[in-house]
Every structure is written in structure tokens, then in C-alpha cells.
């Protein structure tokens, strides 16, 4: 053992230390050819990444009642919200956003999540918040949407929504809270929710599909919410032209955001999902 290691070291450092060593075949081969088995292990799945699906939870009566109540609240809000102030679009939309988010949180509370679920959720949100700092040399490269999508693929639509929502909320708590917070929460939440709906039930997910979805979702979900939001927040009259202009002016930003999300998913979805899968299997969190 020692002998062979010593020789190995000599061979390894051959060009640096004493120039000529006598034996070339100093390599200690005590193990069989493992590289082939390892290769199959390591190849990133061109076939796809396996994902396990959870059991379906039933909502309790309490939550159902809350949801029905909220649903009934919608027309009421639209009617009276418009009358109360001279900024009816803003008032109505903010209230609708809140009504839209509440059921997810109530369903989560109602499920009585286990300690492991809570920790996993918190870790994912934490990663989404901190992720921003890692790519500081590329300021527009924000991995939050990608992490939300990956979480949703692995853990389902509802959890995806929560990860998105909480990531936006907490990220703003660290950077700056503003009138845009509810919109961002809802937008990231919806990105997660839709990703979960599309991909979570599947047995296999290919990373190409995921990164395509990532790119599109930034335009069709995130952009669809955030661009009109700026019109509603900052202008007096929400006109069709203004909304279109907001889409056009927001397009370059969305393009960068969508592109970076796609790149991120293309490279990271694979290993990230595997790591999540391992944690789920090892500690049976489903």
C-alpha cells in the first residue's frame, strides 16, 4: 500500500522532481475498471431527469369555506373597489392579487406540513434569495425564476407557488419593499404554479423542455403580470396603448431575464433536480 502510493506520487510529480524515474508503470492498479459503470452514472440525462410525484392532499372544510368566501368576494371587490377612490384599477387589482394568494397559504397551513417539508421549503426560498449574489458579475442574471421552476417540478404546483411567492416577498424584505411587492409575489408564484402543473406529474422531464418553458414563462406569465402592473401603478388611465407600450418597453428586460432563466435551467435543472430527488428519497419527503 505505502509502497505503491509512494511510487504513484513519484510518478505524479515526475516532471517537477527528479527528472527521470525508472519505472513508467508505477500506477497502482488495485481496482477493476470502474469507469464504465461510473460513466453511466454521471452522464447528465439526455433522456430526462426522473421526478417522483407526491400524494394528493384533500382540503379541509375550513379551507374550502374560506375559498368559497374569497370567490364571492371577487365581484364585490370589483364593484366597490372602483367606487372608493379615483384609482380604481390599482385598488381592485391589489385586492384581487391578495385574494388570489390567500388560498395557497391557507391550503399550506391546513396540510400541517412536517418539519422536513418546512425546512426544504425554507432552504429553497433561501437559495432563491441568495442566488442573486452569486452571479454578481452579471447583474441581470437572477436565478430566482429558475429556482422557483425547479422547486415546482420537484415538489408540485402548490409548493412551487409558495416558493415563488415567498422568494419575492423575502427578497424584497432584504432589498427593498415597495408597491411592486404583491405583483412580484403573485408573478413568481404563478411561474411556479404553472411549472408544477405542467411538469410535476411527469415521470421524466427533459432539460430542453424546462429551459424552453423558463424562457416562455418569463414573457407569458411574469411579463404578463409585471408589465401591466407598472401601468396600473404609475399611470392614471389604463389604456390598451399604454399596456402594449409597457410590453414593448419591458421586452428587452424580459428577454435578458428569460434568456438567463433558460440558460440557468439548461445547465442546473439536471443536477439540482437530482440533488432534490436524493433528499426526497433519503428522508422520504413527498
Amino acid at each position: 500500500m505505502y509502497q505503491s502510493s509512494k511510487e504513484f506520487l513519484k510518478a505524479l510529480y515526475e516532471d517537477m522532481e527528479q527528472p527521470n524515474q525508472l519505472e513508467e508503470e508505477a500506477t497502482p492498479l488495485t481496482t477493476k475498471d470502474v469507469s464504465s459503470s461510473a460513466t453511466s452514472h454521471s452522464r447528465p440525462g439526455s433522456k430526462g431527469i426522473p421526478v417522483t410525484s407526491p400524494k394528493k392532499n384533500k382540503l379541509s372544510l375550513r379551507v374550502k369555506l374560506v375559498n368559497i368566501f374569497l370567490l364571492l368576494l371577487v365581484p364585490f371587490v370589483i364593484y366597490f373597489g372602483g367606487k372608493l377612490t379615483n384609482r380604481n384599477y390599482l385598488a381592485v387589482s391589489v385586492m384581487l392579487l391578495i385574494i388570489g394568494m390567500v388560498p395557497f397559504f391557507f391550503a399550506f397551513e391546513d396540510r400541517k406540513p412536517s418539519a422536513k417539508e418546512l425546512v426544504l421549503l425554507a432552504v429553497l426560498v433561501g437559495i432563491a434569495v441568495v442566488g442573486r449574489g452569486i452571479f454578481f458579475m452579471l447583474p441581470q442574471f437572477k436565478p430566482m425564476a429558475a429556482i422557483v421552476i425547479i422547486s415546482a417540478v420537484s415538489l408540485g404546483a402548490e409548493t412551487g407557488f409558495l416558493v415563488g411567492c415567498l422568494s419575492a416577498l423575502i427578497s424584497n424584505m432584504f432589498f427593498s419593499q415597495g408597491p411592486w411587492t404583491p405583483w412580484q409575489m403573485f408573478a413568481f408564484g404563478m411561474v411556479g404554479f404553472v411549472a408544477g402543473l405542467i411538469f410535476h406529474r411527469r415521470k421524466q422531464v427533459s432539460r430542453l423542455e424546462l429551459s424552453l418553458f423558463g424562457f416562455i414563462s418569463i414573457f407569458l406569465i411574469y411579463g404578463l403580470i409585471m408589465n401591466p402592473a407598472s401601468v396600473i401603478m404609475y399611470t392614471s388611465d389604463v389604456t390598451f396603448g399604454a399596456v402594449i407600450t409597457s410590453f414593448v418597453s419591458g421586452a428587452p428586460m424580459d428577454l435578458i431575464h428569460g434568456g438567463s432563466t433558460a440558460i440557468f435551467l439548461f445547465i442546473l435543472a439536471d443536477p439540482f433536480l437530482k440533488k432534490l430527488e436524493r433528499i426526497k428519497q433519503k428522508h422520504d419527503i413527498i
Binding site: M1, S4, S5, F8, L9, A11, L12, E14, D15, E24, T27, P28, L29, T30, T31, V34, S35, A38, H41, R278
Partner: peptide
Amino acid sequence: YAISMTKKQMVEGISNLTHLTHLWQQH
């Protein structure tokens, strides 16, 4: 990597030195 060793030889040698060979397939 301009040495006469292949990567495989190198990884195996280092694994031997650091007694990791039996753990190769572990996480």
C-alpha cells in the same frame, strides 16, 4: 495535465493514497 499519466491512473492513484477507493460510489 502534461504528464504521462492518464486521468484514470491519476484518480486511482490519488484514491489509493487517500484510501477512498472503496468509497467511490458513495455520495
